[in-house]
Design a protein around this nucleic acid. Structure first.
Lengths: 172, 172
DNA sequence: AAAATTACGTCAACGTTATTGACATATTTC
DNA sequence: GAAATATGTCAATAACGTTGACGTAATTTT
């Protein structure tokens, strides 16, 4: 029950009732959709090149990032953030542990848990990666207008599925 | 009742810009960095589910999108936008052609070229996908403040590598 | 204390998207 | 006619993800 300015592709036969298509053809904001695609590609592309030096990929980056942000988190918590399976996590986590970027320590209260921490080496890499994205983000914020950070924040939050929004923010 | 161990052990969440930083480590805006990660994940996740119905993936989406936006483009042009190899493109393009979503026609001037067009069926799918992302984008824009579209646009543009920016905009 | 559950690890098979390298086939241009 | 161009294709490989099944240690329940 929201009004949607229809946008006809080339719709030859529009005569009949409600020949709707898929999720509805609203006037999709192609410009911003594409901008987001290109923006994200470059946003992760730069760190990718540094990661490749160590033989790592994007998945390793995500693990490094969230372990850095929440040192001592459990494997279960990390899986919940990343929304991947434990088998997927296992491979990259093993790489990072073997290479000495992350270490595990059994939980104090619950010794089944493997809490994750960055090593000194891991912090170096995590900060280097964060630096790249941080600088890019800072530049973007400056060009948008530094005072508009709240606008950007609301925009990005609203892009997230409502159910997940609270979770994402809590982690952030 | 399950005893839920406290999340985010050490990381006290802090507001906008200022993280404690050692000498040399810059002040990465972790909040926006993560928000962009979660936002993009959900932004592409919803279309993914529709694509899966047809046995397609994200790569097919990108091809559908850009062929829709630039009907009649050549394979070379598409490769330039996507920045992938022709072998990578070949597989998804073949899928889309075989399934009747995209068709090729030899160029008028240069008959070596295979210009790409959406079929009627292809347009249906492309618009359904665009509708999903368009609605999400519209919602995000509304929550950010519709008047702030220029801010968002500048922000996203500035996230793109400077060299690529012109190209991305031209295509958009 | 036995039984069940939880937290995690791991082996195996497989799918999607990307890569590099090499080679084939038209078509256009010099 | 030779060279360059636009595209297609075969083959091998890598990164990242999935599902399914099973194992083990630690904790909780009964």
């Amino acid at each position: 029950m929201s009004k949607k300015p229809a946008l006809a592709p080339q719709a030859a036969s529009l005569g009949a009732g409600s020949e709707r298509v898929g999720a509805g053809k609203l006037d999709a904001d192609f410009e911003l959709i594409e901008l987001l695609f290109f923006a994200y590609r470059d946003f992760v592309g730069e760190p990718d090149r540094l990661l490749a030096v160590h033989g790592f990929g994007r998945a390793h980056h995500r693990v490094l990032h969230f372990v850095n942000r929440h040192q001592g988190l459990t494997v279960a918590e990390l899986l919940e953030i990343l929304e991947i399976t434990k088998q997927s996590l296992a491979r990259v986590l093993k790489d990072l542990i073997n290479a000495g970027f992350i270490e595990q320590r059994a939980g104090d209260e619950d010794r089944r848990q493997r809490r994750l921490y960055l090593t000194a080496q891991g912090e170096v890499l995590a900060y280097a990666l964060a630096g790249m994205q941080g600088q890019r983000m800072a530049r973007a914020l400056a060009e948008a207008g530094a005072a508009d950070r709240p606008v950007i924040k609301r925009f990005l939050e609203a892009l997230i599925d409502p159910e997940r929004r609270a979770t994402a923010l809590a982690k952030a």
